[in-house]
Each structure stands twice: as structure tokens, then as C-alpha cells.
């Protein structure tokens, strides 16, 4: 069976700086995979390349057997590959419900029928049903995060890319989001690719980790292994310490 997502030699340069260098990996359906790496490792750039928000210089990206390399963001979403943003980006001037309904208006979601009903179901799932008719401007950040999820889910994705879903959340809210991610995976069978910093939550959720540094993949494996991987440690702590012999 072919993989859900196949990435081959993906490369992106910004005027002399190589942000993503020859990245290759595959994702099988039904997995939760994580991407780990320090700031500037190229993780968000990778997401932007995969989802069409940035054009790539070289490489191949196949989703569900089809090349999506040259497609525009909305076309990629309608193939079943959705994403959230690191910084929540709600539609100001619309209510919570209206925000989600936009996702339900994507052609892919429209195929499933009554978009208004779908929105209600999704709002329920992410736990925003009670706040549905409030304007997004009054929502606390944790709920905005849920809204990000809801809107992406509305497009009926097969693979969901989450860019630092725990960023900006307090301890209490994080637990809820972990729960939500688990439930989406377990119940809906959603494949998930998460970029994260926070190792603890990360370790609980993901089955496989892809570690990046300076735009390249430096290691791939189970969470427990990756965390002890010397290159990974080096990328997080810095060369000096490594030379000092701290392993």
C-alpha cells in the first residue's frame, strides 16, 4: 500500500540561505508523526512548502498518490491535506460558528452535504458549541486554538498538519488539546503531523519522530531513541557543549 504522504528531496532557498535541504520522508496513513527541531530548523518552512504557501525550488511531494507540488493552497486542502497555523489566525468580524462554516464551504466539505449541520457537529467535537455565536474577538487563546482545529477539520482532511499546537497555552489548556488530538486520531482515524517544541506532550502523542536541524533531517525514529540521539541533543544544546563532552 502506498504511503499517504511521500516527500522526496524537497529544497527551498531564500537568497543564499538554504531553509530546507533535500528533505525526504514518508507518512503512512493513520499515524501521528512528530517533527522536532530548534528554532530556525526549517519546520514551519517545510509546512509552508507542503501546503502550497511557498513554492519549492526542487523536489517532489506526493499526497495520496498524486503530486501536489505545483498546486495552490486551496487545491491542496481540497485533496485532504489541511493545516493549522502557529499563531492562531481566526477571521475577525465573524462569529465562532461563521469561522468554522467557512471551512465547511470548501468544495471537499460541500460534498458531504448540509454545511451548517456539519459545522455544528464539529463545534461540538472541539468543545466550542456553547461559544458558537460569540464573536471571535472575545475568545481566550485556548479557545482560539480549538477554533483553528475546528476550521481545519471542517475541510474533512485525511492528513492534518499542526504547527506548534501548544504554543501560547497555559498548563490547564494543554491537557485539553492533547486530549482533543488523541480523540481526533483515535475516533476519526485522522493522520497527524505535528511540529512541536515541548518534549513531554510530544512524547505522549507521537509514534515516530523526524528530527530536523538547519533545514535537514538529522534523525528519524521512535521518540525515546530520538531524545537520546547525539545529533539531536547537539542541535538543541549547541556545539560548544557538545565539544565539552556533554553527551
Amino acid at each position: 500500500m502506498s504511503a499517504l504522504l511521500e516527500v522526496e528531496g524537497l529544497t527551498k532557498r531564500f537568497a543564499g540561505l538554504v531553509a530546507v535541504k533535500e528533505v525526504s520522508f514518508t507518512l503512512a496513513a493513520g499515524e501521528i508523526t512528530g517533527i522536532l527541531g530548534p528554532n530556525g530548523a526549517g519546520k514551519t518552512t517545510l509546512f509552508n512548502l507542503l501546503t502550497g504557501f511557498l513554492p519549492s525550488d526542487r523536489g517532489a511531494v506526493n499526497f495520496d498518490g498524486r503530486s501536489i507540488l505545483k498546486e495552490r493552497p486551496h487545491q491542496i486542502v481540497n485533496r485532504g491535506l489541511a493545516r493549522t497555523f502557529q499563531l492562531c489566525r481566526p477571521f475577525h468580524g465573524l462569529s465562532v460558528r461563521e469561522n468554522v462554516e467557512i471551512g465547511c464551504l470548501a468544495p471537499r466539505a460541500r460534498q458531504e452535504g448540509d454545511w451548517r449541520r456539519q459545522a455544528s457537529v464539529i463545534l461540538d467535537e472541539v468543545g466550542l458549541a456553547e461559544k458558537a455565536d460569540q464573536p471571535v474577538e472575545v475568545l481566550p487563546y485556548g479557545d482560539l486554538r480549538r477554533l483553528e482545529f475546528a476550521r481545519a477539520l471542517a475541510t474533512r482532511p485525511k492528513l492534518l498538519l499542526l504547527d506548534e499546537p501548544f504554543a501560547g497555552l497555559g498548563a490547564g489548556e494543554i491537557g485539553g488539546i492533547v486530549h482533543l488530538i488523541r480523540r481526533l486520531h483515535d475516533k476519526e482515524g485522522l493522520s497527524i503531523l505535528i511540529i512541536e517544541h515541548r518534549l513531554r506532550e510530544f512524547m505522549q502523542l507521537v509514534k515516530r519522530v523526524i528530527a530536523m536541524d538547519f533545514g535537514e533531517i538529522i534523525a528519524v525514529g521512535a521518540p525515546a531513541q530520538i531524545v537520546r540521539h547525539p545529533r539531536v541533543i547537539e542541535s538543541y544544546i549547541g556545539k560548544n557543549e557538545a565539544e565539552l563532552g556533554i553527551a
Binding site: 504557501f53 493552497p73 486551496h74 481566526p90 467557512i102 464551504l105 470548501a106 481545519a152
Partner: peptide
């Protein structure tokens, strides 16, 4: 209608609108 809603979403955040699968 839905059309107007989408225009308002474009005003709110066009990139996010594309990420929601809309051909802005």
C-alpha cells in the same frame, strides 16, 4: 449569502481562508 461570508473571511485573513480550502 455564502459568497458574502467568504468575502468577509477574505477580509479577516486571506491566507487562513485559503487554508480553509477556499479559492480566494
Amino acid at each position: 449569502s455564502r459568497w458574502g461570508r467568504i468575502l468577509r473571511a477574505i477580509k479577516g485573513d486571506e491566507g487562513a481562508c485559503e487554508a480553509a480550502g477556499i479559492n480566494t
